[in-house]
Design a protein around this nucleic acid. Structure first.
Lengths: 353, 353
DNA sequence: TTTTAGCACTCGCGCCGCCACAGTGCCAAC
DNA sequence: GTTGGCACTGTGGCGGCGCGAGTGCTAAAA
C-alpha cells in the first residue's frame, strides 16, 4: 500500500510495473518474474523492490501467480486496467491500411455479404486471430425495386433490390395462377408504393396501407398486397447472421490448446450461438469495445477476449465487426486494426452509384 | 502360409480372423490381442493358434503391431481387404431413412444450395463425422429464363432462372446506358435464344450464334449479345464448390487429436483445397467409393477415410457427396448412409414443377 | 502335420524419488 | 523506502522400478 492508499488507486510506480508486466506477458506468454520485470521496466529498481510491489498488485487482484514459486500473470482485472488506462495503441502500418483499403474497395464485391466476407478474412489475417463480421442489417437498407418472375404454375420468385445494390431472392407460392403481365403489374404497383422504405417499416406499415386503401383497390392490387405479405413475412434471410474467418488461427493458440474447448468455440461459430448476443451488445457502443475473459458472460469465452466495433452507414449503426482471440493478445495492435476496418467497411458499404 | 499359398490369398480361417480383428478394432479402438480375437472370432481356436495366423497376416501386410508386445491393428491394406471382400453393410434404421426423407423433401429449400446444406448436415449427424456435399453443377442445368434489372446508370442485375428452380444473380456493367425497356427486350431476346440450353453450351455456343447472325441483327440484339457475353464469362459462381458440415465431429476423434493435423484438415475445408480433387475422382464412379488413408494421395488425409457417392439428376451425374472421418470408422453403417443420401438428394433435386 | 500349453522375453506405462532451477517471501542491513 | 541475502517451495525433467499385457518360440499333445 502506498501514499494514496485508496482501494484501487495505484501509484505511478505500481502502474508502470503493471503495464510492463502485461506487455511482457503478452509478448512471450511466460509468467513474469521479478528480475525480468525489473529489467524490462527500465527503472533502476532492484528485483526485491519489484517483488514488494508485485505482492501489492497481487493483493489488489491485478495479477496472480499460477503457483507458489512462479512469476506473475495478469488477471482479468489487470488486463482491464491495462487496456483502459495504460494502453498505447500502435496504428496499423501503412501497408496494412493499404491492403484494407484495396481489398475492401474492390469492385468485385457483388453484395454486402462479399464485403463482410472480405472484412472478416482481412481481420483474421492482419491479427492472426478469428475475424467476425455481422452482415449489415438489410432492414435498414431501403428498397429500390421489387420484381416478380414466374417460376411455374403457382410459384414465383420475388426479387428485392435495395438502394445499396444488394439483391435478395425469395420464392413465393401463389394463391392463384397469375400471368406474367399480372405479376409485372403487381411488381410495378408494389415498387411504386414501397420503394424508399426499409424492410422493417414495410413489414409494419404494410397492413396499414392495405387496410387504408382496400376500398379503392382493384383485384390486382389485392393480389399484389397478398404477395407482398408473403414476401416480407419470412424472417430476414441474413439479418443477425455473421461471417467468421480464420477460426483455425485459434488452434495455434497455446492457451486454447484443449481440444474440447476449441470444439466449443467452433460449434458456437457454426451455430452462430452465443456470439450473437455478445456482438449485439456492441451495437449500441460508440467505438471499439473489449470483452476480456469472463466479462463476456459466456463460459465458452473464458480464456478469450473479444474486440468489437460497430460500423455504420450514414450515421446509423448497421453492424458489428471484430476479432476473437485469447485474452493474451496484442491489444495495442488489434484495437486499431478493428477500428480502421470498421471505418473502411462503412466506406465500402456507402452507396456509390 | 497355408494350403493355397499364392501371394495374397488367405484361407477362410485367416479371412475370418482378419474380419473379426478389423471389426473389433473399429469397435473399441484398442489393438486387438490374440486372446481377445480368439474369443471374438467364436471359433474354438486357442490364442496360440490365433497368434500364428496373426503372424502370417502381419507378414502379408494386412495388420501390424504398434510395438513389440501389443495387439494388432489393421493396415490400410487390411482395411481395404475388409471393405472390399468381407464387409456386411447394415442398412440404416427406418428412423434414419425417415429423417433423411423428411428433411431432404422439405419445401423450405429455396435453392439447390439449401438442399446441399441439409444433406451435408444430415450426413454429419447420422455418421457423427464430417459431411461434405458438392453443389450440383449448374452448368448442366438448363436455363429457363433470363431477366435484367436496371440498378443504376451503367449497372444492371442479370437474373438467371434455371429449370430446376435455381436462381443466380450477377451484376453486369453496361457499355452504354440502356433503358429499362431496352433491357427487357434484350432479356426477352436472350431468353428466346438461350432457354433450354445449359450454361456450358451457352458459353461455348454463344460466339457461334453471334457470328452467324450478326448480319441480320439489329442494334439491340448486338447489345443483348454483349451483355450475355459478360454474364456468362464469369466463372460459375458455385460450380466446384462444396458444403461441409459437422467438421467439429472430427475433434472428438482420438486418432486425430493432434491439433496441427486438425488445423490442416480445417484449413483444407475452408479453402476448399485438396478435397475437391478427391471428390472429382468420384464423379466418374458408379456408386459408393472409399478412399482409405494414404489412398487419397493427400498427406492431409493420412489417417482419414473418405466415403463418397456421386448423385445424379436424370441419368447424369451432377455432384458428389460423402463423409470424411478417421480410417477407423464404422464402414458398415457409413457406406449405406452415404448411399441412400445420394439417392435422396437426387430425388430432392428432381424438377417437380 | 496341426494345434496347444507353457514360458521367457519385451515393451509401454504409471509411479516414485531425485535433483536442478526458477522465483518467491522475508529479514536484516543500508 | 530500498536493497542484498537467504531459506523455502513448486515445477519439470530424468532415471529406475514393477507391473501387466501380449507376443514368439519351443516342445509336447492331438
Amino acid at each position: 500500500m502506498t501514499a494514496q492508499s485508496s482501494n484501487d488507486a495505484l501509484d505511478d510506480r505500481a502502474r508502470h510495473l503493471l503495464k510492463t508486466l502485461v506487455e511482457q506477458y503478452i509478448a512471450d506468454g511466460q509468467p513474469v518474474a521479478s528480475r525480468k520485470l525489473s529489467k524490462a521496466a527500465g527503472s533502476r529498481l532492484s528485483p526485491a523492490t519489484v517483488r514488494n510491489v508485485m505482492a501489492d498488485l497481487e493483493e489488489l487482484g491485478f495479477i496472480q501467480a499460477p503457483h507458489t514459486s512462479a512469476g506473475r500473470v495478469p488477471t482479468v482485472k489487470g488486463y482491464r486496467c491495462f487496456v483502459d488506462t495504460m494502453l498505447a495503441v500502435k496504428p496499423p502500418g501503412p501497408e496494412d491500411i493499404a491492403r484494407l483499403e484495396k481489398e475492401l474497395g474492390l469492385d468485385v464485391h457483388q453484395s454486402t455479404k462479399d464485403i463482410a466476407r472480405s472484412a472478416s478474412s482481412l481481420l483474421s489475417q492482419l491479427t492472426r486471430l478469428a475475424g467476425v463480421v455481422t452482415l449489415p442489417r438489410a432492414t435498414r437498407s431501403r428498397l429500390r425495386q421489387i420484381e416478380f418472375l414466374r417460376l411455374g404454375e403457382r410459384r414465383a420468385l420475388a426479387i428485392l433490390v435495395f438502394e445499396n445494390q444488394d439483391v435478395q431472392n425469395r420464392v413465393v407460392n401463389l394463391d392463384r395462377n397469375l400471368t406474367e403481365s399480372e405479376l409485372r403489374q403487381a411488381a410495378n404497383y408494389l415498387t411504386r408504393e414501397l420503394a424508399g422504405n426499409d424492410v422493417e417499416s414495410v413489414r409494419s406499415g404494410l397492413i396499414d396501407a392495405l387496410n387504408q386503401t382496400r376500398a379503392t383497390m382493384n383485384g390486382l392490387m389485392v393480389d399484389a398486397v397478398t404477395l407482398a405479405q408473403q414476401v416480407f413475412a419470412g424472417r430476414d434471410d441474413e439479418t443477425g447472421q455473421f461471417v467468421v474467418a480464420g477460426e483455425t488461427n485459434l488452434m495455434d493458440v497455446q492457451e486454447l490448446s484443449n481440444v474440447q474447448r476449441l470444439r466449443g468455440l467452433f460449434d458456437a461459430f457454426n451455430e452462430q450461438r452465443d456470439i450473437l448476443h455478445l456482438l449485439d451488445q456492441s451495437l449500441t457502443a460508440d467505438g471499439v469495445e473489449i470483452f476480456i475473459g469472463e466479462e463476456s458472460g459466456h463460459q465458452l469465452f473464458d480464456d478469450c477476449s473479444v474486440v468489437t466495433a460497430p460500423y455504420r452507414v450514414g450515421d446509423e449503426i448497421v453492424g458489428v465487426l471484430g476479432v476473437i482471440g485469447p485474452t493474451r493478445m496484442a491489444y495495442e495492435r488489434v484495437i486499431p486494426i478493428v477500428d480502421v476496418t470498421a471505418r473502411l467497411v462503412a466506406a465500402a458499404l456507402h452507396p456509390k452509384g
